[in-house]
Simulated assay, not measured.
Amino acid sequence: MDILTLVGLIFGVGALLLGQYLEGGQASALLNGPAAVIVLGGSMGAIMLQAPMSTFMRSLHILGWIFRPPTLAADEAIEKLIAWSNIARKEGLLGLEAISETEPDAFARKGLQLLVDGSEPEVMRGILEVEVDAKEHHDMQAANIYASMGGYTPTIGIIGAVMGLIQVMNNLADPSQLGHGIAVAFVATIYGVGTANLLLIPIANKLKSIIHGQTQFRLMIIEGIVSIAEGENPRNIQTKLQGYLH
């Protein structure tokens, strides 16, 4: 669990509520159903119009990463690669065939299979890098869904504010309706700006950071497997791969 995500949410929302309290207001004043419908519903509709179905569904799938990011055991991966390198030096590349069939990580397993098949190092690098680039591109598009929503919500919040003011102008003769219209106007603006800057844009940036980490991890796997194919000394491979840990 990424505790920093939870702490950040508590701090962000808590700061708004504390500020409202210190100004003499009540938290309930920030609760407004129509404003929430306008901002959240409008933003969701806009992003659905923008994104392909596969990208939109992927964005929902990876949202949980902000709390539970995929585990990247880089130290363990380096140990495995060094062990594979030692086996390859002693038994040849075919000595890795049994390992290639049982390796749990799909990407490393694919690299091992290419290694066992005797593929040229640059061919292996090209094949694996294409997969890395394609996955990174797809996941980055999914993360950008939240960045795009962060761009839409403030504007839609302003639309909600204008709609609220229209209701105010239409009910000038009925003072009992003025408060409700003004509340929708200002709360919609808060929802739009607050949702963008406290949730959506930070979520997008955290997801991009996680995706970048995954890409670096896979590039490390590629470097290790290609180094094995080139017959490099296991100690040199270890020194090279440890550079990815920084």
Score class of each variant (00 low, 15 high):
M1K: 00
L4E: 14
G181C: 10
L81T: 12
S176K: 11
Q214V: 02
P121G: 04
R109M: 10
V7Y: 02
A73F: 05
D139R: 09
L172Q: 08
I38A: 05
I182W: 03
T155K: 04
R68K: 13
K80I: 06
I221E: 07
I127M: 12
L207H: 06
L112H: 06
T195N: 12
I190W: 02
K80S: 09
G118N: 09
T55E: 10
L49Y: 10
F11K: 00
W65T: 05
A108C: 13
E131D: 15
G224C: 05
V116S: 03
S119L: 14
G194D: 02
T215S: 13
D133A: 15
M44R: 05
Y152W: 09
M57R: 03
T189H: 00
Y244A: 06
G64H: 06
W84Y: 15
A73K: 11
A185H: 07
V39Q: 03
I221M: 15
I237F: 04
F186K: 01
G12S: 11
V130P: 02
S119M: 14
G181H: 06
R68L: 14
S119T: 12
I190E: 02
E136C: 00
R125Q: 10
Q177E: 14
S176E: 15
R235P: 00
G164V: 07
L63A: 12
M57Y: 04
T5C: 06
I47L: 15
I10F: 05
T239W: 01
N236V: 13
G42W: 04
E129F: 04
I211F: 07
I3W: 12
Q141Y: 04
V132P: 00
M1L: 12
S227I: 07
Q167M: 06
G224Y: 02
L178M: 15
E122Y: 01
P202D: 11
N236K: 12
Q26Y: 07
L219K: 13
G41M: 08
D174M: 10
L172D: 10
A108N: 05
I221H: 02
K240S: 08
M169D: 02
A98K: 03
F186G: 12
A134K: 08
P104A: 06
T55N: 09
P104K: 01
P154H: 09
D139K: 07
Y152K: 00
A74M: 13
E232S: 06
I159A: 11
G41R: 09
E23P: 04
L198V: 14
L200S: 06
I156R: 01
D75V: 14
V132T: 10
M1A: 12
L199N: 07
M140F: 11
A188W: 05
I158R: 01
N233Q: 12
Q20P: 02
L241V: 11
L81Q: 04
K208C: 03
A35I: 12
V168D: 03
I190S: 03
G160N: 05
E230K: 06
V168Y: 01
T102N: 05
L16A: 14
N144Q: 08
M124R: 04
N171M: 08
